[in-house]
Design a protein around this nucleic acid. Structure first.
Lengths: 202, 202, 202, 202
DNA sequence: AATGAATGAGTATTCATTCAT
DNA sequence: TATGAATGAATACTCATTCAT
């Protein structure tokens, strides 16, 4: 099992090790959020995390592995959040279900807006093609499952387009000064409902 | 008035100078498209452009200035393309005008998909905040002008949201294998029409 | 009396300790043979030996001490092998005695060819000058003792030259593809006999 | 033509560049001779050579390339030296020819004794297998050419063995305190003549 | 005694930029 | 003006060694 850049080098067993592992990831998130990808270097991460550079390399085979782990954690959060909402939306009207999904998505983007944008870009140079495809399929399936309950035609294609368009809208709003949570929700709602109405009329 | 990183060091007057200047930008585009931002370094650019590193620095004060110039050229292309279409859309039905805008936008994205994504990211660390705000406003005004002709309420807000959502949809599609021009257009059309219908019903 | 890098930190008394000690040395030999000196690091040794890095340092004060111990063991093996043969050669003809010495030497080189070469090099940076001089003298005395029985003039000088030349021949052959045991023996025999004949004629 | 560790990165064109290139190699030789392979690191080389670390990497893709270039230069020196002597030995008696070859070889070893030993070891981890085989064949052919003139049977095999044995003898003597040039020559002469006599009697 | 988490000095390498020619 | 040799700060990563548990 050779260490690839895609997997952590050592799985933390002791409590201290776990804390170190998390500290490295949290420090990375902070740097990404405050200074961007340019300032994310291993020495800086170690310093912010309060560990030595050697310790960092005990847990991650390299800088890319840290980025990959951050991406994975963020994906897991979003997927689980959407899945939970999708499940509880089973017996609710379309508008309610949609709004719940929107809230989860917007909250997710708002948590670390800069980190999200940066990690999206990082995907383009990390060896994550296959994993990304799987993740996108999972997201599409979750959303498509909700859409299918309301007789939306071609639910997978609709889900994929909705996700992309909403991501663009939300991320774009968060980049600019227009970062009011409720305002974003309102516009996203119009977009989503409008799109679904149009798709149904097709 | 010292040269700021945001402006080329010299305005090329002679034809040879112009050719060198363009060669540097074209080389940068090629490297960005093929290898990504990581491989974009000044020595490599000079080599691909067929000039010496010294010459490169005669034309640009630094690496960032090259990126900035690429961003400006791309922005100018898109803005001019949309403006031309918007003008000729003055006496056409909404659907036709919208489709024309969509075509320009999709073509723009498809020209150098990887470059577009990369430059979008590069904006986040270049000193371009003000300029970017102006550009976005210009785009919004162009699109809002069209929407206003058809009594779309709050045309500026609608234009902004449409631009963001469509960018997300188109860029996302181009990232994945789903890069069929007509297929993208079809879905973008649904999104745009659906959104405008929804906005009108508000 | 602080532990010097030239001596193991503890003399193992219990069987388990002895096993650990040997496991570390065997692991080092395997790494040296398979991957070379570059890959020989204490963490790797500990891993291959199946002990923790802390335990390794209980038995050896440092990496150099491991190398030194390997060198000592190999030297002891060679010296004892040659000494045994030299003793039993007391009442045999010169050719027979010489052949026996050659066989021991070739067998010794063939056991771990890569390890031998590497440890020869390691001598150059380990604090082993005096010990090495003693060892070389011992070897020379063993061989010179045999030569003296057959009236070889200046037996010590002849022994020393023979050892050096044969080492060069054997090691060189083992480095290349020409590693046939019998073929090496044949050429070494010619070399040794020719040299002794020449020395006698002086 | 991708930069491999086996070839210099940039062939010096200007006089200044040539001087820098040579300074790097000379500094490496000095470090090798005085401190050994352990202390041979790129920063140290650059410092001793009086150039910056960046300059070093303009000429060599890495540390290994420097070692390889040193090996090549030493090999060329030895090969050319032996070839010249072999040619001029065409019409001389065997003893004279052999002595001339011995002198070249001993002089070569004595030039940088420590460097020679170290580079011999370095061969074992550098990607030089094929090149080394070619070089050894060339040496063997030069010496075998001389031996063949005097009806030595199997001249190639004899040449190869002689080279290996003499290298062992000379290098071994130079390692110890016994580094008298004439003394070494005398013993090498006995070895060479004895070996050839023995081979002829076979 | 054994463990393994942590350390940090050391080393290789890159790349934006300068400046003498 | 163009060239390309030179610079050196910045960065990734290794590995011998220590020490708290």
């Amino acid at each position: 099992m050779p260490a690839s850049p895609a997997s952590p080098r050592k799985t933390p067993r002791q409590a201290r090790a776990r804390a170190t592992y998390d500290a490295i990831l949290q420090a990375s998130t902070r740097i990404l959020q405050r200074d961007g990808l340019e300032k994310l270097n291993t020495n800086h991460i170690a310093e912010v995390a309060g560990v030595s550079i050697g310790t960092l390399y005990q847990y991650f085979p390299g800088k890319d592995a840290i980025l990959i782990e951050l991406i994975r954690q963020k994906r897991t959060q979003l997927r689980d959040g959407l899945a939970a909402v999708a499940e509880s939306a089973a017996d609710q009207p379309l508008g309610t279900a949609l709004d719940a999904l929107l809230h989860v998505t917007i909250d997710h983007h708002m948590r670390w807006p800069m980190v999200g944008r940066t990690l999206d870009y990082a995907e383009s140079f990390l060896p994550l093609a296959e994993e990304s495809a799987v993740f996108k399929t999972e997201l599409v399936e979750i959303v498509a499952g909700v859409l299918a309950q309301f007789a939306v035609p071609q639910p997978a294609a609709a889900a994929r387009d909705l996700i992309l368009a909403l991501n663009g809208l939300i991320a774009g709003r968060l980049t600019s000064e227009q970062a009011e949570r409720d305002a974003i929700f309102e516009r996203a709602q119009i977009l989503a409902h409008g799109y679904i109405s149009a798709v149904k009329k097709q």
